[in-house]
Design a protein around this nucleic acid. Structure first.
Length: 757
DNA sequence: CGGGATACTTAGTAGAATTGTT
DNA sequence: AACAATTCTACTAAGTATCCCG
């Protein structure tokens, strides 16, 4: 049940405990001067950069970029303030903070260099590309680990000790490399000792890259007409369809087993769009979808997929190789001297649109995308991708203020789709890092902001009260902002600002608690949010006020929208938006839960259970759900059988041990003593196995409807997990799989065991 | 200010790939 | 080796946020 929000209140409480109470005075002083100082600060900061080559006050974009720089700078100058207090800590810190620290110094000398972190550049490798040392290091580790896996287990422990040593050395080398790398940045600013050819981009004024070359997208395979023996029937009579109409018919036929092909909206939308693809003759004949018989087509596709499964190894291998070839050719691009993996280089194939939830456009035809629909983005001095023979791109442009390589407009909602880089890329990694830094900045001032919105609950102005209550929900319940949506264009879902009166019920008293708000609404992806939350009296009274004289379908916050809210947040903290609260609360919850749940005496599986539980607390907070796996019940049963078997095995082993002991007592010889020892070990081993199974069962049961992946990938500062692994000697592979390790390479290299979010 | 356009992040799921079991 | 169970990956929909224009 998602109603369990034990961590919410404690979150707020311990949050304030964390931030030393003696700071309170400063805090309020801060607040008083905030408005006046804000502008000044900005200007002061700006003037620091005024001698930078890119200064141009007339250009708004430049100002924006300055703002971005400020964000990064802020953290480092705060560090400076805390210098004395932190001094001792610094002595203990390893490489992780070292980056920040040197970064601080660096930013004073050459602020631009800061933007390069943590991707310090190196010499080109033999493949002709530059790789950042960090990535290289992770790759190398992985290779090491892979090797280890092939070795027998006994050797592995000795081996891992050596490996640990080696890693330490490696780490030291990395520090060295880092320092050398930084020197190179410092040098040019000290003298005009210009440069090495690997002098890299300084991303000012929103520039995302200087060089971008790629091969363009891979188009969906062309339509292959059905063999003539697969027939379509209308009103019981065979009818040969034109290729265009046939293709769309196959889309429907492939979905026949799905429940949604029975839905009215789906059928209506499909039929309307299908008719558009028909010849005029077909159009006049085919007037009723209910008379269409797709069953032969459907059977044909089922047979095809069976055949695919039954293919020989060679055939499967051939397909695999072909895929690999495509990946090698189209799956990578070159961005600023780095070869980077592309996330989605295939164009989405045509088909029937199936939105999530009750979508008014379900069943509509998603058009085939042609080269003429495609906009290519690459640098002027690159080799442009070639359109397929006989075709043209819609446009080739060279916009280095965006990160996408290819775009097209989709026909269902008219939105733009993009081809972008993989999460492991520099450009995504840096952004991700930045996101967590922003959340950490919120941590520093969240007490002030909370005090402020609590104050605002009493405001004379309705709009301010609404804003304050909404922000309270966003903070306490990790609700999404809730942008307005066009009615009839999408499923009816809401977020915080778009909540309607019908989505909450107020209970003066419920289950022995006062002032309970019951939430029940569909959020993103039409996932239901259901929660009963006790709130403060003042919030409760405000809600009553907001709901007064309103119809159920009226907006709860009629004086508020996301843009107003975000503007307000911007004033409270530079760069703050509603979604930062989700990131912040998710990450801080993970950290707290990990601290609370992990005990160092536990064995590895038990620690991992603790990790999963901490992760789960976050997933519950963020309402990340999944459909229970189809095989859930069965797999639970299987596990239980295994546990029972193991228990029996344990009982047997114990009995054997007992008799061996008795035997040894009588015989008193070496042999029987040894037998006792080995029986003891056997019992221990079995006990351990049993425990592991039980842990697994608990974990799985608790995880039935909860999806951990989303929070892990998008909300939890990976440095928390890395630090936790280091602290408790858990191999990082147990927490992050290969893809995740690639995505979080920056964090894996940056965070030490004492990292604190 | 409001609405459309744009860019980018966050989300759950289907099916492929891998791993475990018999 | 065959099959089942589990994990991973690709896919793409659905959000957030910001900018620009009238």
């Amino acid at each position: 049940m998602s109603g369990d929000h034990f961590h919410n209140d404690s979150q707020i409480d311990s949050g304030s405990r964390h931030n030393d109470s003696h700071k309170h005075k400063d805090k309020y002083k801060d607040k008083e001067h905030k408005h006046k100082d804000h502008k000044k600060d900005k200007e002061r900061e700006k003037s620091k950069y005024s001698n930078s080559e890119h200064r141009d006050s007339s250009d708004k974009k430049h100002r924006d970029k300055d703002k971005e720089r400020l964000k990064l700078k802020d953290g480092s100058s705060d560090k400076q303030k805390d210098k004395h207090r932190e001094k001792k800590k610094e002595e203990r810190v390893g490489r992780g903070l070292c980056y920040f620290h040197i970064a601080t110094v660096l930013s004073q000398l050459n602020p631009l260099a800061l933007e390069e972190f943590p991707f310090i550049k190196s010499e080109p490798e033999n493949d002709g590309f530059y790789h950042s040392p960090k990535h290289e290091k992770s790759l190398k580790r992985e290779r090491d680990d892979d090797d280890a896996e092939f070795k027998p287990k006994k050797i592995k422990t000795e081996e891992s000790e050596k490996k640990a040593k080696k890693r330490k050395q490696e780490e030291e080398v990395t520090v060295l490399v880092a320092c050398v790398g930084m020197l190179v940045y410092i040098l040019p600013s000290l003298c005009f000792f210009i440069p090495f050819r690997w002098e890299e981009e300084r991303y000012t004024d929103g520039v995302k890259w200087k060089f971008l070359e790629h091969k363009g997208p891979v188009f969906a395979p062309p339509y292959e007409p059905l063999p003539s023996n697969v027939k379509f029937y209308y009103d019981g009579k065979h009818m040969k369809l034109s290729p265009g109409a046939e293709e769309v018919a196959t889309f429907f036929a492939k979905m026949l087993d799905h429940e949604y092909t029975t839905k009215d909206v789906f059928r209506k939308n499909f039929f309307k769009d299908w008719r558009k693809e028909m010849t005029s003759e077909e159009k006049s004949k085919l007037t009723d979808l209910n008379k269409c018989d797709f069953s032969e087509m459907s059977e044909y596709f089922k047979a095809q997929s069976e055949a695919r499964k039954a293919m020989t190894k060679e055939e499967k291998l051939k397909i695999k190789e072909e895929n690999e070839r495509l990946l090698q050719e189209y799956g990578f691009c070159i961005m600023d001297n780095h070869k980077e993996r592309i996330a989605n280089f295939r164009i989405e194939p045509p088909g029937l649109f199936r939105g999530r939830g009750d979508h008014p456009k379900m069943g509509m035809l998603k058009r085939r995308i042609r080269p003429e629909d495609i906009i290519i983005n690459c640098s002027k001095d690159s080799k442009y991708p070639k359109p397929p023979p006989g075709t043209k791109w819609k446009e080739v442009r060279h916009d280095n203020k965006v990160t996408w390589l290819v775009s097209w407009t989709e026909n269902i909602q008219g939105s733009i789709k993009y081809i972008m880089l993989n999460p492991s890329s520099r450009i995504k990694g840096e952004k991700d890092w930045q996101k967590y830094e922003m959340a950490r900045r919120l941590k520093k001032c969240v007490d002030r902001i909370r005090a402020q919105y609590r104050e605002d609950w009493k405001s004379k102005e309705m709009r301010i009260r609404q804003r304050a209550v909404a922000l309270y929900f966003i903070d306490k319940l990790a609700l999404r902002a809730g942008n307005e949506k066009e009615e009839g264009e999408t499923a009816d879902t809401v977020g915080c600002c778009s909540l309607r009166v019908e989505h909450l019920t107020l209970h003066q008293e419920m289950d022995g608690q006062e002032y309970v708000v019951e939430f029940d609404f569909l959020g993103k992806d039409s996932i239901r949010y259901y929660n009963k939350v006790p709130v403060e009296k003042r919030v409760f009274k405000n809600l009553q006020l907001f709901m007064e004289d309103k119809e159920p379908e009226d907006d709860l916050f009629d004086r508020l929208n996301t843009s107003i809210l975000n503007k307000h947040l911007q004033e409270l903290m530079d760069g703050l938006t509603a979604k930062v609260f989700r990131t912040y609360n998710a990450s801080i919850t993970l950290q707290q839960q990990l601290n609370e749940l992990t005990s160092s005496e536990d064995n590895v599986p038990a620690k991992i259970l603790s990790y999963n539980r901490a992760n789960r607390a976050v997933a519950i907070l963020c309402n990340h759900q999944r459909a229970p796996p189809k095989t859930f019940e069965k797999s639970m049963q299987n596990l239980q059988t295994k546990i029972d078997a193991k228990k029996e095995q344990l009982a047997d082993a114990k009995r054997e041990l007992k008799s061996a002991k008795a035997d040894a007592k009588v015989r008193r010889d070496e042999k029987s003593k040894k037998a006792v020892e080995s029986k003891k070990k056997a019992v221990q081993r079995i006990e351990e196995q049993l425990m592991k199974l039980e842990v697994q069962a608990t974990d799985r049961e608790e995880n039935k409807q909860i999806a951990l992946g989303t929070s892990k990938l998008n909300y939890l500062d990976p440095r928390i997990s890395v630090a936790w692994c280091k602290k408790f000697g858990i191999p990082i592979e147990k927490i992050y799989n290969k893809t995740q390790r690639e995505k979080f390479a920056w964090a894996i290299d940056m965070a030490e065991k004492d990292y604190e979010f």
